[in-house]
Design a binder for these strands. Structure first.
Lengths: 242, 242
DNA sequence: CGTACTATTGACGCAGATCAAGTTCCGTGG
DNA sequence: CCACGGAACTTGATCTGCGTCAATAGTACG
C-alpha cells in the first residue's frame, strides 16, 4: 500500500515480516516529530540516548574541521535509522543534521529491545539494515579513495537511485536529489565547483538529465559500467531462507 | 597478565567484564588456526558463515577494480573481529585477506549467540566493539575525503598507535607497522610513491622515526594537532556506568 | 526589488599521480 | 658464503585532475 512507511517497506523487502511484526515496528515508530532543514539532530560528541528513524527527507552525519572543511560520512534517506546502536551504548558520536525538512520517529531503546527479543525476523531485519549501512560506508571509502570524480558521481547516483527505489521514492529511472552541489561535494570529497563540472559532463555524455533537482538516469547500464558498480553491497532482494 | 588474548583485553578495557565473562569469551575463541600472509580469508562475494577473531597479525577488507586499483576499506588489528555480524546473516561481503602471517580464532555463530544472551556485559562489549569499528570507518571517510596526504598519514599513525596500545602491541610511542608502503597507500587512498615522500617529510619534521618497520612517534601532541585528531571516536576508556 | 543563497563558467595553480631510474633489502640456491 | 633475482623502497622529472580564485547569472524569499 502507498501509505506504508519507508522503514517497514525497506525491512520487509529484505526479510519477509509477518503482519504482526510490521505492526510492532509501526508501534516503535509512533512517536513522530518534524524538523526543519539544517537543524542539528545530534550535537557533536553528544552522548545521548537519541535514536531516530527517518520517515521523509534527507539527513547526514558529518565531520567538521577547524578551517571549515566538511566531510559528510553518511547520508540518511527515508527508511534509515539514525544512531540506533549508539543510543544503546549512550556514547558520543559525530554530529547529525537534517539536510532537508524531515519527518522522524523517535525510537526508545527499551521498546526496541523488546521488539528485537520478541521476533527473530525483526531482529534479522534490523541486523540486515545495520550491515547494509556498513557496506555502504565501506563502498564509499573505496569510492573516495580510488574512483575519479566522474566515476564517483556516477556511482553515487546509482546508489541513491537504488536506495530510494527500495523505499518507493524513485521509479522510472527518476528521483529527486534535494541536496545543494555544496552538500553533494561534502559527500563526495570534492568541491562544489568540480561537482558542477562533472554533472555537466554526465549530461553532455547523455547519461543523465537534471531538471531542477530531479535526476533522470538515461542509462543505468552505462552508469554502472563507468563506476564498476557492484550492486551486491546494497543487499537488495530476499537472500535469506527462513 | 601478559598471556591474555587481545580480544579479552580490548573488550575488558571498554566494559568491565567478570572473570566468568572472560572465560566465556576465551571459550568462544578456542578454535584456533594460523594463516600465512597474503592468504584470502573471505573470498569476494562469498556468502559464508565464517567469522573470525584476529589474535595476532594484520588483515584487511578491500575492494578491487578491474584495472588493478585497490582500496583497503578496513584494517583488522589483533583483537578485532572479522565478519561477525555478516556471518549471522550469511551474506556476501567484500573480500578479506591476511596482510601478514596471522593467528585467528574461528567463531561459531551459535556459540556466540548463547554468550551474548547469557551475559549483558558481553553483549555490551560486543556492541561497543562493533560501534567502534564503524566510527573508525566513518572517520576514515573524513580522512580520505578531506585531509591532505600529510594530515591523513599523521592521523592514521596516531590511530594505529592508540588501537595497538589498547591490545598491548604498542608502548612508549613505538609500534611495528608491518605493511608495505604499497598496502599503506591502498589504505590511505594514495600511491606508494607519495606515501614514501610524505613519510620522509614526517621524519624531516621530527614527528616520527622509522627503523625497519618500527614507527616511533616523537610528538603525539603535534601529530594529533596536525591531523585534528579527535580521540573520542576510538571510544577508549570505560565510559559506561553499570 | 534588494539580499543572500545556489549554480555556472573561465583562468590558473598545486597536491598528488605517473613515468622512469636506481638502490637497498632479503630469501634462495649454487 | 656468495651470487642472483625479485620485492620493496627511494628519488627525480613531468603531467594532470581537481582545487582555488574570480566573476556572472539565476532563484527564492521577505
Amino acid at each position: 500500500m502507498g501509505s506504508e512507511n519507508p522503514v517497514c517497506r525497506k525491512l520487509n523487502a529484505a526479510i519477509a515480516l509477518s503482519p504482526k511484526d510490521l505492526e510492532t515496528i509501526e508501534r516503535i515508530l509512533s512517536n513522530r516529530l518534524q524538523v526543519a532543514a539544517v537543524t542539528s539532530l545530534v550535537a557533536d560528541g553528544y552522548a545521548g540516548q537519541e535514536a531516530y528513524a527517518l520517515l521523509s527527507g534527507w539527513a547526514c552525519r558529518f565531520r567538521m574541521f577547524e578551517d571549515g572543511r566538511r566531510q559528510i560520512s553518511r547520508l540518511f534517506l527515508p527508511g534509515d535509522f539514525i544512531g540506533l546502536n549508539a543510543s544503546l551504548l549512550g556514547m558520543p558520536e559525530q554530529p547529525v543534521a537534517a539536510l532537508t525538512d524531515v519527518r522522524l520517529a523517535k525510537v526508545e531503546g527499551t521498546q526496541l529491545m523488546e521488539a528485537l527479543k520478541g521476533s527473530h525476523r525483526i531482529w534479522l531485519s534490523f541486523l540486515w539494515s545495520d550491515m547494509r549501512d556498513r557496506f555502504i560506508t565501506e563502498e564509499r571509502v573505496a569510492s573516495i579513495g580510488r574512483r575519479s570524480a566522474y566515476e564517483r558521481i556516477a556511482h553515487m547516483l546509482m546508489e541513491l537511485y537504488l536506495r530510494l527505489e527500495l523505499v518507493g521514492e524513485a521509479t522510472d529511472s527518476t528521483f529527486v536529489l534535494p541536496l545543494t552541489q555544496e552538500s553533494l561535494a561534502d559527500v563526495l570529497g570534492l568541491t562544489s565547483i568540480h561537482v558542477n563540472r562533472v554533472l555537466r559532463r554526465l549530461k553532455q555524455d547523455r547519461l543523465i538529465t537534471v531538471d531542477a533537482r530531479t535526476i533522470r538516469i538515461l542509462s543505468c547500464e552505462r552508469l554502472m559500467q563507468i563506476a564498476e558498480f557492484d550492486p551486491r553491497y546494497l543487499m537488495h532482494g530476499r537472500h535469506l531462507e527462513l
